[in-house]
Design a protein around this nucleic acid. Sequence first.
DNA 1: ACCGATTTGCGAATGATTTGCAATTGCGTT
DNA 2: AACGCAATTGCAAATCATTCGCAAATCGGT
Lengths: 141, 141
Amino acid sequence: MITPAQRYERFLTDLKAAGVRLTEQRKVIVKVLAEAHDHPNADELYHRAYVLDGSVSLSTVYRTLRLLEDHGAIQRHDFDAGRARFENADTDHHDHLIDVDTGQVIEFRSERIEKLQAEIAAELGFDIVRHKLELYGRRRG
Amino acid sequence: MITPAQRYERFLTDLKAAGVRLTEQRKVIVKVLAEAHDHPNADELYHRAYVLDGSVSLSTVYRTLRLLEDHGAIQRHDFDAGRARFENADTDHHDHLIDVDTGQVIEFRSERIEKLQAEIAAELGFDIVRHKLELYGRRRG
DNA sequence: ACCGATTTGCGAATGATTTGCAATTGCGTT
DNA sequence: AACGCAATTGCAAATCATTCGCAAATCGGT
Ligand SMILES: [Mn+2]
Ligand SMILES: [Mn+2]
Ligand SMILES: [Zn+2]
Ligand SMILES: [Zn+2]
């Protein structure tokens, strides 16, 4: 079980190893990402970071998100078109179930589905590079 | 095997039945959608419609797309973030495999994957309202 | 502490989509 | 077939998320 603090340290270590300059703003944004348990968008990340350090701007949040994505440190999602959502990429691959009533995002992983996807692609003569599986559902009740 | 002409007629019939005013522009846009074999975006639809009738504007294309989507006549996809793509909704449900090198969109359907998704949602206490499955792959060779 | 390359905040630019408004048009009614 | 008015249109301006230009600030190796 990795803690947010450990995740934060790993973020910084990896970035430093990659020769990325560790500015105050980047450290704050990375900390916010390391502590996020949800799938925040750029604006939400900006607000959380701004509380910790008023010198963070929305532009830098966007630039840092792009940087981290390019380094494979975070992953970008487009659940609802219009606003991208982010999460750190150090966890195992998983897909998402979105509660259409509350917007809550639930993570899951199915080996069978992962395998089936590869089989389908193979039948069509393709190798999967990446995939997107999102279930939009309503709580039973 | 439904023909584009038949699809076009059905579009018009359904819209008329729903009390939608059949303007020249809407008829042209609907015709273009009925004849599309790919997954065009708003701008592509606009150009194809404009050739048939120079009185069609991009605004009306957008307004008509929204109208048709609200009526369940077409479906919107967000393969690449930024530009929505559309296809008529009278065909059976299917998912998409996108060739990352060419952008080509290949349709497929897997009963097993459809069923697995429902099972996973059920395990989590949900009923699926809709889902999005996109495979991004590279041709084997 | 120094210094140059990198990064930042700001505001302006972007690109897709939406919207306000005056002019046009579909279509039910004479 | 002409009438009348609410719905629809084209155009330009507005939106919204994201990117970009640039001068000022800062990181990090020396
Ligand atoms: Mn997740
Ligand atoms: Mn399709
Ligand atoms: Zn998956
Ligand atoms: Zn499906």
